Computed example of a mutant assay.
Amino acid sequence: MKSKLGILVLVIFGLLVSSMQMNAFSMDMGQAVQNAKTSADHEALAKYFEDNAKEMQSKLQDHQKMYEQYQSESQHYGRQGVDMETMCRGLIRTYEQAVKENMEMAASHRKMAAEVK
């Protein structure tokens, strides 16, 4: 029982570490946003933000599945399961916000692309 929980904690930790790379605004993106002048520039940025939103949506769904598993099998996890549920809920909220913000940025750049034409 404890070894299964230990393995599960390691897997979750690995997922958390890998999902920390959610920053949609790297230094290159900041420069790309500042330099965007043409319709094509804004379309490319819109596609970038839409692709990023899709990636965040996928991670969101993964964490929703994990959360549901913790809830359905909570009797097996005890107190540590509650902690894992809490972490999953936090990540779900974070990914939901990331999806929303990326889609807003994509819409904004699509609008700018249409205005530049």
Rank of each mutant, 00 (worst) to 15 (best):
37 K>E: 15
6 G>T: 14
116 V>S: 03
85 E>G: 03
33 V>N: 00
56 M>Y: 06
10 L>I: 11
18 S>Y: 12
114 A>H: 10
15 L>Y: 04
71 Q>L: 08
79 R>A: 14
89 R>E: 15
49 F>N: 00
92 I>R: 00
50 E>K: 04
36 A>M: 03
101 E>Q: 05
91 L>Y: 05
92 I>V: 02
45 L>F: 02
104 E>I: 10
86 T>G: 06
59 K>R: 14
60 L>G: 01
2 K>H: 10
103 M>L: 10
56 M>R: 08
25 F>A: 06
84 M>Y: 05
105 M>R: 02
33 V>T: 04
8 L>W: 06
72 S>A: 12
104 E>W: 07
37 K>I: 12
51 D>H: 08
39 S>G: 09
84 M>W: 05
35 N>H: 11
8 L>F: 07
15 L>H: 08
97 Q>G: 05
4 K>R: 11
108 S>A: 07
21 Q>L: 09
6 G>Y: 12
67 Y>N: 03
16 L>E: 12
115 E>V: 11
78 G>P: 09
55 E>L: 05
112 M>W: 11
116 V>Q: 15
101 E>K: 09
63 H>G: 04
45 L>P: 01
62 D>E: 13
102 N>M: 06
26 S>I: 02
28 D>K: 04
80 Q>A: 14
48 Y>P: 12
96 E>L: 01
91 L>A: 09
74 S>W: 06
65 K>E: 13
24 A>P: 00
5 L>N: 08
24 A>N: 04
16 L>Y: 11
